[in-house]
Design a protein around this nucleic acid. Structure first.
Lengths: 253, 253
DNA sequence: ATAAACCTTGACGTAACGTGAATGTCAAGT
DNA sequence: ACTTGACATTCACGTTACGTCAAGGTTTAT
């Protein structure tokens, strides 16, 4: 069964504008375009839209959703994961309700309550949970330098930006190679490498944090795929970058 | 106990940028500003921030939150209402989980499922629920023409826009008065009145819908406060506007 | 005294659309 | 065949709620 754009929008309870936007960004591409330029969607798109809406329900941003849907096409596994996350979200709402009850009791003078207890359960923790849960999965897939042209749509880069990214990547490799030979993770060259790496990472991450960055470079050391890649740049450069980042971010793991 | 901006942000798990933004829009004004220009918040702001975050959790937009917090200062009543809404949200998540389970069973071939069942429970219904639950409350407070200067901050209007709004309102009253005397809700003058009313409403509503507009003009008829107000413009003008809007929106209630 | 942490304002940018303009296409009715 | 209303397209501007950065002032701890 085929759906026009308004039919699918009505079915899913979203706007046609949303569907056009999802098409434009490559998140939900119609099954085909009619000869008159009209979008037509079929069963595969219905199912994919359902997945998208589950992720949206869990406050996952669209770029992340797109990446996640590239990582796995196992529908049952995805659905079970959504279920698990929704059960977590349910618990989080229960925590909020408990906070309300505690606050009411406090207002009535029935119990004491410290100010920090008043904010237990709010959404910021959900966003952090997303970052942890989904960020790790994305990093394992896209934190790798072998980004090819097919991913430019994902990153929504202009030609110029893509070119800039290539230059930056080349610069990063050159600088890292030279920095490794200094054997000084705290030196100027090493710290410049870190700054370049940070700039590079920001092309991929919507929400940067030093912690996440540190986790990534630690993964370069721990994961054989990345370790091998960095060995090919310069021997020992994964560990070197990890050590340099530790200083750059002023963090020790 | 007083909190600096970062202390309060950390306490609540939000950013200092968010707190500055809330100050700027008047949603959460610090208790005082220090001599050095630093913001200081006290207990009242802590409690108000908690209320704001509960509304945010329920996907209520900030302008609506601001309006709601002007309507009622009864903390216990607000908390009980949040609780009620969160319990609804919990049910909605349970519905989503049921949708997942049904979809999994469908994929496995264990049961039949129509496409429309795949979208049961998604968030758009929550947004509609907000519109109904909170919109009505806002309308009863702000859908009234007696907007005074103290509300311009709420609407975030420039001087020019405020002036335009006054002109529009005057024009609306004049046109309505003349339209009523035609006794023709479908006539040009009546339909012009509706267009003016729609333009006027859009100053207040972030998300316009003909249904909501119809509900509002119906309320003008049903609610004595508004009815009396419209009688003072021209006798019978509340019903007239309701009838004219029915034609303008192509809806019959 | 110094460095780091904290604060301010100003301003640009982002994500995910909502809205409207202008125009083409389709289907049903006259 | 023509008309009208519903449906579709692209283009483009605007909105909301911040994230991020720059530039510079203030406070705190060493």
């Amino acid at each position: 069964m085929e759906y026009s754009i308004s039919k699918l929008a009505d079915l899913a309870g979203i706007s046609t504008r949303t569907l056009r936007y999802y098409h434009e960004m490559g998140l939900l591409v119609p099954a085909r375009m009619n000869s008159n330029g009209y979008r037509l969607y079929d069963q595969k798109q219905v199912d994919r839209l359902q997945q998208i809406l589950f992720y949206r329900e869990l406050d996952v941003d669209l770029k992340t959703i797109q990446a996640l849907l590239e990582v796995s096409h196992d529908e049952i596994r995805l659905l079970q994961e959504h279920k698990h996350q929704l059960q977590n979200k349910k618990k989080h709402i229960e925590a909020l309700i408990a906070t309300i009850e505690a606050t009411i009791a406090h207002v009535r003078g029935e119990r004491m309550m410290k100010d920090n207890e008043k904010f237990i359960g709010f959404k910021q923790e959900q966003i952090k949970a997303n970052e942890e849960q989904y960020g790790e999965e994305i990093r394992s897939q896209y934190g790798h330098e072998t980004i090819d042209a097919s991913n430019t749509q994902f990153l929504n880069l202009t030609e110029k930006e893509m070119h800039d990214l290539e230059i930056l990547q080349q610069q990063l490799h050159d600088t890292l190679r030279r920095a490794v030979s200094t054997r000084n993770p705290g030196g100027d060259l090493a710290q410049e490498t870190c700054a370049l790496h940070q700039r590079w990472i920001r092309y991929y991450w919507n929400f940067y944090s030093p912690e996440a960055h540190m986790a990534l470079v630690q993964m370069y050391v721990d994961d054989e795929r990345f370790k091998a890649y960095y060995e090919s740049i310069a021997p020992g450069s994964a560990e070197f970058l990890r050590d340099a980042m530790s200083i750059f971010t002023n963090m020790t793991s």
